[in-house]
Design a protein around this nucleic acid. Structure first.
Lengths: 355, 355
DNA sequence: GCAGTTACTGCAAACGCTTACAATATTTTT
DNA sequence: AAAAATATTGTAAGCGTTTGCAGTAACTGC
């Protein structure tokens, strides 16, 4: 025997603890209520103009009364679009990436996309896993950030049916659309400026030289400035370290020992560690040591003395990358593949007057 | 006439620019290749044991050869599960929330959930929109963070069929599962300690008193300590401000003018602003002013002098919240609804020896 | 070697929506 | 007022899975 309980009875039977929440209405319920077909409801939901105004109103009314919300999953399956994009990034707790993310998020929202976020700690294996997972979730696009575009990652991306834009991430092969500042230029400028100030030994502190962004961009700009005044790169003035406060603290004495009187640092966390080491060892900045950092996050304002920095429009890099992605998802063409946003040098207290 | 092109011809026809990437294989392709039914393939994919080993192997082989990856969207529709959770938070660029997020993310990943991230800037309207959007995307659970659980937000959550856990967010009504430190206790302790040091005027700098977390927790702990030594709260020593560096800089002189000789601050960004104001006005810390902050982010280590802080296990709060959510999504019971993780007071340079 | 179990496997109906295409209304034209 | 054109609506076939049920194959024990 089949027993059918009405909702009220059911509620009583189940008791208070397990209140049966109202089942979400489906498009079918709406259609029934109004006495039209699914297709019509679907049309008004999707803003298709081929619906008589009077019908549209009735449908809208029913939608409101039923509290109907289209099921995005079903929609995704039927339309092959998820209105979701994926972000693959090293680490949200890094302010630099967090600000890029914020830019991406805001623009994504503006275009009604949701954002799936994955932290991969710059591990290529996890990058690939993340991308695959995003693919299976049928995201409409992906924004990739990170120090380096690993071979495996590139292969994975190439095999993808989904548009990808790099943000704050350099593509040595110039194939993928990307948004960055002109790193070569930025590092060239600041190096040249410090050289003009008469520094003999300008140290460069960056990430691993295995990464294109360090080798082919930061170091390249630095080298260019040196060469221009007829000098060679002195390897003793080159330092590499991850974005880690403690580890950098250990690196600091070596940098000091190198005899550098100025240093250019690729990341604020690293720069602050260096700064604090110097501060704690009673160095005079900028008197004994000039210091320029590179990402201009809050850290450079908060530290004392405040850090002179290459300022990247972080939020904008994210925002522009996302904007480009919307175009790609829309099958529009991109005017530029490798967008370079303008950077500035913000003069604060760890350098003398720059020029 | 129907013309069927093989892939090669098609590739030529379409030209290089628009290379047709290999269509993703479906479960159907796998089944065909092996000569079994969809159901069987589905079973092996889902680890159902009712499959003969030999069959399983054949299927696995085909999956590998075809590079088959189950379509998560279709899966979601059929199974009503998305293996995705949502995070609703104020702002990723705030280090406090970023670290919570990282904790959530890591645990989510461990359980093979993906994470949909929304920034709402603590705006209740956007909170509600975000939650609705997540619901339509059929997330299996939601983690909510923020200063305050607005009425409207609560109503939305109550109407949800999806489990929600609060992280670093207090529920005045104690209904929703949450993870926090014991704010009352923490603020009580630190206030008591400063009072023992002989301070007459201890300022409290927090967020809006409209928010339960400030009114019923931070202020409550502070009040309790005062009352315990037979004193009343002096409203002139109470300050409220958002987590904003610049705005706090404007607040700073007022705090100084209040005659406070010690202050307790609810957020690191705010604390650093205050600290820098004092530093820039040649105050001696902790000599003329003792300062305790509350979130123990990188800022408190990076600033000079380093900030004494109430230390929250931020990453763990996120991680535990996510762990609780997995249980709820699994219909398991929670041992505790309102989890309180232990906090500590980290003594640094802006206070004298604490006790 | 046969009934009774148990282990596998397949069938087919969902899941909630989009979207060609077909069908019907309505308006316009002549 | 009929034909033609256009606007509106409905039908039904997917989208790629999961899963209850039923059927078949493979073992058990006697």
């Amino acid at each position: 025997m089949l027993i059918i309980l009405d909702e009220e009875t059911l509620l009583k039977a189940v008791g208070d603890r397990n209140v049966v929440k109202k089942q979400n209405a489906t498009i079918y319920d709406v259609a029934n209520r109004v006495g039209v077909s699914l297709a019509t409801v679907s049309r008004v939901v999707n803003g298709n103009k081929n619906v008589r105004d009077s019908t549209k109103e009735k449908v809208l009314k029913a939608i409101d009364e039923l509290g109907y919300q289209p099921n995005a999953v079903a929609r995704g399956l039927a339309s092959k679009k998820s209105t979701t994009i994926g972000i693959v990034m090293p680490d949200v707790t890094n302010l630099y990436y967090a600000e890029l993310t914020r830019g991406i998020n805001d623009v994504a929202n503006m275009y009604h996309y949701d954002v799936l976020l994955t932290n991969t700690d710059d591990d290529p294996v996890r990058d690939v896993l993340a991308i695959n997972s995003l693919e299976s979730k049928q995201v409409d696009g992906i924004i990739f950030m990170g120090n380096e575009l690993d071979q495996g990652v590139r292969k994975t991306i190439d095999a993808l049916n989904i548009p990808v834009v790099l943000a704050g991430c350099v593509d040595a092969q110039q194939k993928l659309p990307s948004v960055n500042i002109d790193y070569i230029d930025a590092f060239y400028e600041i190096t040249a400026s410090l050289l003009r100030h008469g520094h003999e030994n300008v140290a460069l502190v960056m990430g691993s030289l295995d990464e294109a962004i360090n080798r082919d961009y930061r170091l390249a700009g630095y080298t260019k400035a040196l060469n221009e005044v007829g000098r060679q790169v002195d390897e003793k003035l080159l330092f590499t370290t991850g974005r880690d406060y403690q580890k950098t603290l250990e690196l600091a004495p070596k940098v000091v020992a190198s005899g550098a009187t100025a240093m250019i640092v690729y990341d604020d966390v690293v720069a602050v560690a260096l700064l604090n080491y110097l501060h704690d060892h009673h160095f005079d900045l900028p008197g004994q040591m000039e210091l320029v950092t590179s990402n201009d996050t809050n850290y450079s304002i908060i530290s004392r003395p405040q850090l002179t920095s290459i300022a990247q429009p972080k939020y904008d890099i994210g925002a522009v990358a996302m904007r480009m992605l919307t175009k790609l998802m829309n099958n529009e063409d991109l005017k530029e593949q490798a967008v370079k946003l303008p950077h500035t040098i913000v003069q604060r207290q760890t350098t003398h007057e720059l020029n």
